[in-house]
């Protein structure tokens, strides 16, 4: 049953692409999440409302639908803007569309996670930092951020697990990730079950490794926290 007819390298190639998409979109999600969380907690009404619209919209529309909208619609809008300014054609490849969309979606979830993390930082710590004469930037970098990381880590890990599985959707817009390649191989060999099962196992490997890494990070960032 596990005769892969020489298609395994193709699946592994797809796995590399899957991991690339996942890591890149995680980076985008972290940046968007930080911006979103700070906007939600800022004093500016505009920043708060736009962050709210962002998170509400993203949670309201399925990732698959958002991805198709960005892949096709985004290209058309970009062309219109490009024509207006007289730019050359800029391509939104399936890779860019997939990565951007996933980053964009999980940016919204990260916003909530980071917001919770920042709110969980106790006021006393920040007051103490101010008392030491730190300015707002220094307080954020040296006090709020590291503490926020500790508080958001469980939520962050959860988001990453969901994100890494969402990458499977890029196969629907034609990116040759491991799910797409499993489809090609399964069709050619008439063994779709075998190949999708292999892909499922590879996903379990990714989640397993992540789980291990997250546990390590959790210990690392919780140094000095007393547990009952």
């Amino acid at each position: 049953m596990f005769d892969l007819h020489g298609y395994f390298p193709m699946i592994l190639q797809g796995m590399i692409l899957t991991i690339e998409v996942a890591l890149l979109s995680l980076l985008i999600a972290i940046i968007l999440g930080l911006i979103g969380a700070l906007s939600k907690l800022s004093k500016s009404q505009i920043a708060r409302s736009s962050a709210n619209i962002y998170t509400t919209l993203i949670r309201g529309i399925p990732d698959l639908v958002l991805m198709t909208i960005i892949y096709y619609g985004g290209q058309i809008q970009l062309n219109n803007i490009g024509d207006f300014f007289g730019w050359d054609y800029i391509d939104i490849s399936p890779f860019i569309a997939g990565t951007l969309t996933i980053g964009f979606i999980f940016g919204a979830y990260m916003t909530e996670t980071f917001r919770g993390g920042i709110l969980a930082v106790s006021k006393g710590e920040i007051e103490a930092a101010h008392a030491f004469g730190m300015n707002r930037w220094k307080v954020f970098v040296h006090i709020t951020m590291p503490l926020m990381v500790r508080h958001s880590l469980p939520g962050f890990g959860n988001n990453w697990m969901v994100l890494s599985k969402s990458t499977a959707l890029v196969s629907v817009i034609g990116l040759h990730d491991m799910v797409y390649n499993a489809g090609v191989a399964g069709g050619a060999t008439r063994q779709p079950f075998t190949f999708y099962l292999v892909v499922a196992m590879l996903f379990l490997v990714i989640t397993g490794v992540s789980d291990f890494g997250l546990r390590w990070a959790n210990r690392r960032f919780s140094v000095g926290v007393r547990r009952a």
């Binding site: 096709y72 290209q75 062309n79 054609y89 391509d91 817009i173 034609g174 040759h176």
Partner: peptide
Amino acid sequence: VPQDWDGIIPALLARK
């Protein structure tokens, strides 16, 4: 450029 059939004309119009 490989492209799914469903989106093959829209992608042409979108200059992909």
